[in-house]
Design a protein around this nucleic acid. Structure first.
Lengths: 252, 252
DNA sequence: GTGATAATGTTCGTTTTTGCGCGTTTTTCG
DNA sequence: CGAAAAACGCGCAAAAACGAACATTATCAC
């Protein structure tokens, strides 16, 4: 039995059993452990299997690693912000939840609300909310952005235009002293603008780390935001801006 | 982090039983309690399980259990069917993948294709395909169906109407001897019909268990299907029907 | 037959995993 | 409440698995 014949069979066994062991394959093929190890290593390199001590398993189709790391970042602050935000949203109304790790946290906090219609362009939020039997979830169409599960582009804005929301919860990549909401992705900017124009009340959630970052594309002005929920005090300039534009600021 | 052969199986058991005990796993794997505890602790650290005294339970944020069970059902057959189906699809074309566990398996098999544009109304498929950097993924809008992550309703059909696909891969809940494709959910029927009318080539994937089931709503006739991929021989009546209507049948 | 090439087997030092002892924490039950 | 029992986590040594280098065998073109 040559290597070229062994590999397909290893994959076949792995698919059937969910996993393979070095010992098991040694018995099965009657070759040395080292040979099996070589096979498994090569199969792992081409992504067919995932190598583990003692054998190999089917590659886990779970979520993006980089993203889950980012999600953990500043998690405590995000949850606090999310809790405050969720308290501002009553039962029996329509809500839009936008892309972002903080808005995801808001989704988790909304799980015990009743009679909500939630529209979202974030696949992760859809997954989170699908747990609750008392929330109707609508997903906008759009191009799937690999990095964070966001749906952007023309299809997304098209869908949003068909609704008028009681509340929209949006986020941003960065926040300037001039009271401008900024983002990295120009496609997302279009979506955010559309959301704002189709919502009665716009909530912005952003943890303090956003104050120190820069991003190239302008989404909107703070003047278009009705409530801003964050965890760190704003700069004096920004505070003044919120006062004059009538934006309420809540601290978590 | 280091993997272990046991961990995937522990998760599998946990999904089936809802919980796992240290003692039970010690018996199951024939290892020391310490080893099991380490496994459970590590699984808890990565959020796969939630640790409790004496064992572990599913985390509160886990997705629908009934669904993952159903996905495991007949898994080997589905994967075989999916592999045959994926071979029929070339690189650099547009594909629609519909709702269904078999179509999910097709998505997994398509991961190594190049230059695909895949449109889907299944959130799970979107997640699977987001791993591949060489596949552009578009999600249709729609009402999220909790049971299986499907997107249905008017928004979904609206999105589909804006495309013309090279290939569509659809599934069905049941298949009648008369050559009719049947489904449980009337909302999904509308989506499936729209898909068929916007695709050059329609592939139907269905494992043999569908032959024995009944479902109330009619999606389409086998005559509208260009290729049918399954794992068990069709009934004589159905075979004749496929011959007269020019539907090619492939066996995995 | 012969030599080149690839696959497999063998040896050995290194890394990872596992099991055990033991003190601490949590649960159970009178 | 309080003690016994069970479960837990930690450190360490044994065992298993690992990978690299090298020897051996099989394969194939010439």
């Amino acid at each position: 039995m040559s290597q070229s014949l062994r590999k397909p069979e290893i994959i076949k066994i792995a698919r059937r059993e969910g996993r393979v062991t070095v010992d098991g394959l040694v018995d099965h093929f009657g070759v040395a452990p080292q040979t099996i190890r070589r096979d498994l290593t090569e199969l792992a390199e081409t992504g067919k299997l995932e190598r583990v001590h003692g054998g190999a398993v089917l590659p886990s189709t779970t979520t993006n690693i980089g993203y889950s790391e980012r999600r953990a970042l500043n998690q405590a602050a995000k949850v606090d912000i999310a809790r405050v935000c969720a308290k501002q949203i009553p039962n029996d109304c329509s809500v839009f939840l936008s892309i972002g790790t903080t808005t995801e946290a808001v989704a988790a906090e909304l799980l015990h609300h009743q009679g909500l219609l939630v529209v979202t362009n974030n696949v992760n939020i859809a997954m989170i909310l699908s747990q609750s039997p008392s929330i109707e979830v609508v997903v906008t169409g759009g191009n799937l952005r690999r990095s964070d599960g966001g749906l952007v582009g023309d299809l997304a804005t098209q869908t949003i235009r068909q609704f008028q929301f009681d509340y929209a919860v949006i986020s941003c990549s960065a926040l300037r002293d001039t009271g401008d909401l900024m983002d990295f992705d120009i496609q997302e900017v279009g979506v955010s603008k559309t959301i704002i124009s189709h919502s009665e009340e716009v909530f912005l959630v952003a943890d303090g780390s956003k104050f120190e970052r820069k991003a190239p594309a302008r989404i909107a002005s703070m003047a278009q935001v009705d409530m801003f929920i964050t965890d760190r005090p704003l700069s004096p300039a920004c505070t003044r801006f919120c006062e004059t534009s009538g934006t309420r600021v809540l601290y978590a």
